[in-house]
Amino acid sequence: MNLDVIISYIPLYIEAFFLTVKIGWLGIFLALAIGLAVAFVIHFKIPFLSGISIVYIELFRNTPLLVQLFFIYFGLPKVGFTISAETCGYVGLGLLGGSYMAEAFRSGFESVPKSQTESALALGLSRKQLFWSVILPQAISQSVPGILANVIFLLKETSVFSAISLMDLMFTAKDLIGLYYDTKEALFLLVVFYIVMLLPVSIIGSFIEKKARFRTLGV
């Protein structure tokens, strides 16, 4: 491996890294918002909306992100909806992630025993107070492992953005391999930057998971 080549590539990778991280986390926050809303609608059986939500979850959980992105980026402009590659990236990731996050939140909601609702109602709490003070905090701490697994999954999924010509890490690596044939160096940096992007999340994630488990279960 040629160190000079690696050093000369680093600035390109750093730029791509920040783009990937930015779109990745924008997508994840969007996914969390969509997921919580959808899980709420389904768990509390809000008429009409819950039907739509279930269809949404099934559609997005059972199709690949790459296909979703192709449809949004190349297909939708043909019927008049044009969006930039970057927007397409995080909207696509947010829609895919929303369907996964919804499942995580939903199992969180389901894990709160019905008797918690009853004892809160017996104390005179209103439906709104019941949701915010009793159900949501418990549901979220139960959802933590699922949410963290999804965060890592979604950060990994960012690797397909290059297919809609976003200049992310994959795109940069592929570009450099095609241009200069310094394959080893390009691949090495690709791996290094993905490790930098994901290893801290993975480590912090398992720490948070242990803490959340301790709070609810005491183990």
């Binding site: 990994k156 999924e157 690797s159 592929k174 080893k184 691949l187 690709l190 993905y194």
Partner: peptide
């Protein structure tokens, strides 16, 4: 397991395919 957990399949594909053929 940790490698598989944090490495995108896409990166692994590139590593194996371009790593063997080109490198």
């Amino acid at each position: 397991l940790e490698i598989v957990r944090i490495m995108p399949q896409m990166v692994l594909l590139f590593l194996v395919y371009f790593g063997t053929t080109k490198a």
